[in-house]
Design a protein around this nucleic acid. Structure first.
Length: 433
RNA sequence: UCCUCGGUAGCUCAAUCGGCAGAGCGGGUGGCUGUUAACCACUAGGUUCGAGGUUCGAGUCCUCGCCGAGGAGCCA
């Protein structure tokens, strides 16, 4: 019987069988008459044990000459072994080299700096740590979409290229669009609002772009944002949705990605603690609390990064900061009915110092007030005519928010750098690879 | 745009007061039948980011530039 190709993740169920593993050599150790080939194939890792007297002299010498990341087809029988992390090892009977590199692999076994690793992102993705992060990222997105789909939301994607400026012209990437100006989307929200008037419960999900020269571990110039928008939801309904969505995401990751979290050495109990209800602070209360904790941010200012860090360290679950001053927020947010200096908005801050992962608001649904807000902020009216139409034809109470996928992934994985939370990070000085 | 820190072997870093350029990993050679970032011995490997300057002497001090990181601002 000829051996069949098997994925490493399936080997525990193939004990005693002869299989072929197609993959790469990520490490190798040898004791002279026995080689330990560490193999990976994208589904998992397994140790291939090659004993000199059990294979041909040629095979044994071939294995000895392998460089790291050689691509291989390894034939062997699956054998139970208590010393193996997955419970099984491969007793190697034959090896076929697809390609043996002629140079040493740039990423070594010891620590590297972030700069070097980012330069080698195309190779770094092969590491077990990056594999774990990307699997969790996929689960975060999957869980969010599953939750929204099951709750009756329609995915209505927004354009990437837009003639309107969105939240303001600064921070937009300008492109040449057949001799006129266009911009890369900073948000899909305005389009999601139009879609909400058509379909009720909607969301968009895609890449967004910010030309800010931000150089921090929380920023990317290209990042993925999930933006639900719901007809007839007010500020409170909006926060309830955010809470449910975050809980669904965390639950999904805990259910499906425990090995990945463990390999990242994430403190899982901190994630298991993420349950409704989250904490709520009014903006004024947050400022008061910050003053007691030593911050000097005056009432009326937006919270700084340090403020977010200090604040979230006080809580073991995410915390909503509600109703910021109108002056520091976007023109489309609805004025607070009891205090016209505030707006009906919320930022959701993730615990452990991670800070803002969601920004949302109830939208201004009055045509007149929205128009005057556009004028107050000195924005051009013409690009927003279609947006104003939404208030002209059947205006409706509605709310929505934007969730930054990479920030959520960074928080759930416990990452130092948001750059690890996306396969190909784009930052101000990094366009390659 | 501003502030702070950094750039030394392929990688991660060290080098005292300004006084011979070092280590670990990786590479090479040899050894080892259970290794887990394997281990042991030997070995090769340098335009100390660049340009000036001070000095008997500069990786180290000064000036300018380049590159990167962290942070501020702004935001998800």
């Amino acid at each position: 019987m000829t051996a069949q190709w098997a994925y490493i993740k399936d080997l525990p169920s193939l004990e005693g069988k002869e299989v072929i593993v197609k993959g790469w050599l990520y490490n190798m150790r040898s004791s002279g008459k026995i080689h330990f080939l560490q193999l990976r194939d994208g589904t998992g890792t397994v140790q291939g044990v090659m004993v000199k007297k059990e294979v041909s002299e040629e095979s044994f010498m071939t294995a000895k000459g392998l460089w790291l990341e050689a691509s291989l087809e390894v034939t062997g029988s699956v054998r139970k072994d208590e010393r193996a992390p997955s419970g099984v090892e491969l007793s190697v009977s034959g090896i076929s080299v697809i390609q043996n590199p002629s140079d040493e692999y740039p990423i070594g076994k010891k620590d590297h700096g972030i700069d070097f690793l980012l330069d080698n992102r195309h190779l770094w993705l092969r590491s077990s740590r990056q594999q774990a992060i990307m699997r969790i990222r996929e689960r975060v997105i999957w869980s969010a979409r599953e939750f929204l789909h099951n709750d009756g939301y329609l995915l209505v994607d927004s354009p990437i290229i837009s003639g309107a400026a969105g939240e303001g012209v600064s921070g937009l990437f300008e492109i040449d669009y057949f001799d006129s100006k266009a911009y890369l989307a900073q948000t899909g929200q305005l389009y999601a609002e139009a879609a909400a008037a058509a379909f009720g419960k909607v969301y968009c999900f895609g890449p967004t772009f910010r030309a800010e020269k931000s150089k921090t571990r929380r920023h990317l110039t290209e990042f993925w944002m999930l933006e639900p928008e719901v007809a007839f939801y007010d500020h409170k309904d909006n926060m309830d949705l955010q809470e449910k969505l975050i809980c669904a995401i965390v639950t999904g990751v805990l259910e499906h990605c425990r090995p990945e979290l463990e390999s990242l050495e994430r403190d899982i109990s901190k994630l298991e603690n993420i349950k409704a209800p989250f904490y709520h602070l009014q903006y004024g209360e947050a400022i008061e609390m910050l003053h007691k904790l030593g911050s000097d941010t005056p009432y009326g200012d937006d919270l700084g990064n340090d403020d977010e860090t200090i604040l979230t360290q006080q809580f073991d679950r995410p915390v909503f900061i509600e109703c910021y001053p109108k002056s520091v927020k976007a023109f489309y947010m609805k004025e607070h009915p009891e205090d016209q200096d505030l707006v009906l908005c919320d930022d959701l801050l993730a615990p452990e110092g991670y800070g803002e992962i969601i920004g949302g608001s109830q939208r201004e649904d009055s045509y007149d007030r929205l128009l005057s807000r556009i004028r107050e902020q000195g924005l051009p009216e013409e690009p927003y005519d279609w947006y104003l139409d939404l208030r002209r034809y059947g205006t409706f109470v509605h709310s929505g928010f934007g969730m930054g996928i990479e920030r959520v992934v960074a928080w759930i994985c416990g990452l130092q750098h948001i750059r690890e939370a996306i396969p190909w990070p784009r930052t101000i000085y990094r366009l390659k690879p």
